[in-house]
């Protein structure tokens, strides 16, 4: 943990201008992941620009209730407790509540949650090769400890998974990320925020130099109101996902009108299961239909002895989650 300068941000624009063009500068928000990395030596910024006190801490409705705009600095616990999040997009509340601990949720921010980095044991251990931490050094997880490794979208350079629960729910609900850069504001569809590793796993997202997430917009829909998040993990609490499923469904009688499925614990980014969704729309929602839809999505899954369990776990958990949502819908 090397010596660094610390500056409290005066405004979002100031923060962006200060960090842009300075490779040694990083934003500090809740700090729950960054401070962890400072100690481990995973990152060593020269300058921290503290954005945690910027007034990006509101949850508000936009377009007459078409959705919720969530400030980047809204703490995970406050977001999960927000009445509109609980009633209009329960998947978001449930994802947040399944993550980390009460204390960490009090500290961690919305944007920080999305930008947290992998918990791959090799990424966090600076004495071992890791392409994400040190490009070109190799991937230790490929033939190492791999129980949490990806089964979709991985590359020879990186086989890790994205750790966020919130991101999986937001992927399912078609959120939009509002980003401030030196050229002004731009809006990033959630599916375009996180990247697959390809041959450069050192880059987690599509954010440009100095770009700052200022808010996340989540549209409300009948599906979002009938959404949930199911996380499978070893411990009953305070553990990262083996796999997780964010799901939302809108039925027309027994038939699926709209369905959203996103998975956590399977890829370098939250994995929106669009093939599975397409296979279900217009069909009757049955356990078997979900299982075969999941298998379409997983046709390209690559597993090892350590990750083979994720296929049946995803199949079962997705079937469980969607059939339960459908039961609630028709109750």
């Amino acid at each position: 943990m090397r010596a660094m300068r610390y500056l409290p941000a005066e405004s979002p624009v100031w923060a962006v201008e200060t960090v842009a063009g300075s490779p040694g500068a990083q934003f500090l928000a809740g700090g729950t992941n960054l401070v962890d990395h400072l100690k481990l030596g995973v990152t060593a910024p020269e300058l921290l620009v503290d954005i945690s006190r910027l007034p990006l801490d509101q949850v508000e409705q936009y377009d007459d209730g078409a959705g919720l705009r969530i400030g980047a600095n809204v703490r995970n616990s406050d977001l999960a407790a927000h009445p509109l999040v609980r009633s209009r997009m329960p998947a978001v509340a449930r994802a947040l509540l399944s993550g980390a601990s009460g204390q960490i949720r009090n500290q961690a921010t919305t944007a920080g949650n999305l930008l947290q980095r992998t918990r791959c044991v090799y990424f966090q251990d600076v004495t071992t090769p890791c392409n994400k931490r040190e490009p070109g050094s190799g991937c230790s997880a490929l033939e190492g400890y791999g129980r949490y490794n990806a089964v979709l979208g991985a590359s020879a350079a990186c086989v890790t998974t994205h750790p966020s629960d919130l991101a999986v729910a937001l992927a399912a609900l078609d959120a939009t990320v509002v980003v401030l850069g030196t050229e002004g504001e731009r809006r990033v569809p959630f599916a375009d925020l996180h990247r697959l590793p390809g041959d450069d796993p050192s880059v987690d997202t599509t954010l440009g130099d100095g770009e700052l997430i200022t808010s996340v917009e989540v549209p409300v829909s009948r599906a979002s109101e009938r959404s949930t998040y199911r996380k499978v993990r070893d411990r009953a609490s305070f553990a990262f996902a083996l796999v997780s499923v964010a799901a939302a469904v809108e039925l027309d009688g027994p038939v699926v009108r709209d369905v959203r499925i996103a998975w956590g614990g399977v890829a370098h980014r939250p994995w929106r299961a669009r093939l599975a969704e397409a296979a279900l729309v217009g069909r009757e929602l049955t356990e078997d239909a979900v299982r075969s839809a999941v298998d379409e999505e997983l046709a390209d899954a690559e597993t090892t002895a350590q990750t083979a369990y994720k296929v049946p776990m995803l199949r079962n958990t997705t079937a469980l989650t969607l059939t339960r949502l459908a039961e609630e819908e028709t109750r």
Partner: peptide, 22 residues
């Protein structure tokens, strides 16, 4: 990890001990 020789699950996030909910 036998390639390196050390334990790579070397913290309380990756070495799970029972939490209260368990």
């Amino acid at each position: 990890d036998p390639r390196f020789g050390h334990v790579v699950t070397q913290d309380l996030a990756t070495y799970h001990v029972a939490a209260h909910a368990d």
